[in-house]
Amino acid sequence: MTALLEVTDMTKVFGGVRAVDGCSFTVEPHTVTALIGPNGSGKTTLFNMVTGYLGPDSGRVRFAGQDVTGVDAGTLYRRGLSRTFQQARVIPQLSVLENLVAAGGYSWRQLLTTRRVGRADRDRAGQLLEEFRLSHVADLLASELSYGQRKLLEFAAVLMSDPTLVLLDEPTAGVNPVMIDTMERHIRERHEAGITFLIVEHDMSFVMRLCDPVIVLDQGKRIFSGVPSEVQANALVLDAYLGS
């Protein structure tokens, strides 16, 4: 089976810092792959390069068999590569429903000829709202939601375009334990429905429960990739986290 996402020899330098330094890894289809590493190991930079937010200094990204290096974020999204942000970014002054509808990934023809929120959009978004238990707040402004609800909304929104690969940047950061379970359940459900995930996460028990395989970064390089049970035993990984 060919990899869904293939990152080869990625490098990004900010001034004197090699944030990502010749990093390569793959994400196989139908996996929930974790990307972990200590703070500053280059996870978010890598995310930004893979999703078209940041041009790499060198290296290639292939997604679903095509070279997508340097392709812009919107195009990638419409092709099925979605992401969320660490800080639960939603459009604050739009309603919850509009936040979903906005993320539909439309063609120019649809933009110019269809209603802002049409009946079909309402149905489609309604299903997601129900799945994520947000129906009762559908007409509130996104800025009025709690942080946990915003995380759910952001996750739900990127599903509007029927993505094949979803990159989640710390889905459990800053949310309460109940919400962590909720998030986990949604990821599992969507995974069973065929979506591949790549997750940056610091909550190790969450990673160990949910993800396989696990990729570990340190100082911009991949130092490990394999099954979760081996991660904790790996000397390099322990070194990276605890220092030698």
Binding site: T51, G74, Y77, R78, I91, P92, Q93, L94, A102, G105
Partner: peptide, 18 residues
């Protein structure tokens, strides 16, 4: 809707295919 989204958070809007 696209304009409102980009006014709210342009970088995020880019990432949701706007």
């Amino acid at each position: 809707l696209s304009l409102a989204a980009l006014r709210g958070d342009e970088d995020k809007a880019r990432g949701i295919g706007i």
